[in-house]
Amino acid sequence: MLDSDNAAFIQTGVSISLAASGGDRLPSMSRGLGCKLVDGGRQVAVFIKPSQSAELLDNIRRSSRVANVFSLPSSNRTLQLKGLDARIQPFEVADLPIIKAHIADFVAEVLPLGLPEEVVRTLFAYTVDDLVMVVYTPVAAFSQTPGPKAGEALDAKP
């Protein structure tokens, strides 16, 4: 589902948001602290803080359906992925460098836009015991970059 360009894109200093809906259709969402590709690039794993995401994680356990948006503040390039098989996995300490690199990339991305670094670092503050990984297979991808093509489905490319 993800071509190499989009696969690289979601691992840059993008803003990440993950959502899942409850039985009453009420969705909940949380910020992601970075992501990685697993299963040979076929799956996306997003790092989430459970302390901020009880409702989101309950919804994922219930429905396994997620919407995941990646947006680069400096260009407004935005990509939404959807998955039907999301599951929650424990965080592996070996992935800490990914989170650290993601925060550093995001800080570098938004500082020129005028956001104070302290605010960004506070927003992404975490502890290792308060992290989980939500893993899913993207089955649909949509460009949400503002403009006439916003919302268009992206064809799967090898």
Binding site: S15, S17, L18, A19, A20, S21, G23, R25, P27, M29, S63, R65, V66, A67, N68, V69, S71, T78, Q80, K82, Q144
Partner: peptide
Amino acid sequence: TEGTPNLAY
């Protein structure tokens, strides 16, 4: 209506 979530900025 099927409960599929959607996100936007």
